[in-house]
Amino acid sequence: MSLNQKRRVFLKGSLAAGTLGAAVGLLTPGAVLAAWNKNAFTSKNIDEAIAGVVGNPVTTPSKDITIKAPDIAENGAVVPVSVSTNMDGVESITLLVEKNASPLAAVFHLPKGSLPDVSTRVKMGKTSDVIAVVKANGKLFSARKGVKVTIGGCGG
């Protein structure tokens, strides 16, 4: 094989690798990003934030929603929160921290087949209630739990 031929083979190989890389990159949720709910996430008002996500600020308090969060969080920058429910047909779970500058923390959209049981960690500026809003079969339910914060997580 001449040097030139080897070069061809090499180019072919790297080209194939490049295409593969691009295919993996396709998964990045670029198309969905346009839907990121800027108004709701920057809203300072809790009702507006809830309405911005689920369309309606009126929710029914429910005992079927379990919020697992510490009673006292030593470090407000990292507060582990789990939300689960035994309801059927849950479409989304929205997590809010009542007294944060922007209360909306996270929205989890659950397609059919995914269980309504999500965990994450949030920042809390000060002692406040954590609110979970569950959308199930088009209806809105909510639950709240107080978390006492000894060191805030939103200051400098």
Binding site: N37, V97, V118
Partner: peptide, 14 residues
């Protein structure tokens, strides 16, 4: 799952 997050999710999210 499809999540929308704001700045209130902790550093190095879980």
């Amino acid at each position: 799952i499809n999540c929308e997050w704001g700045g209130a999710v902790s550093k190095n999210p879980y």
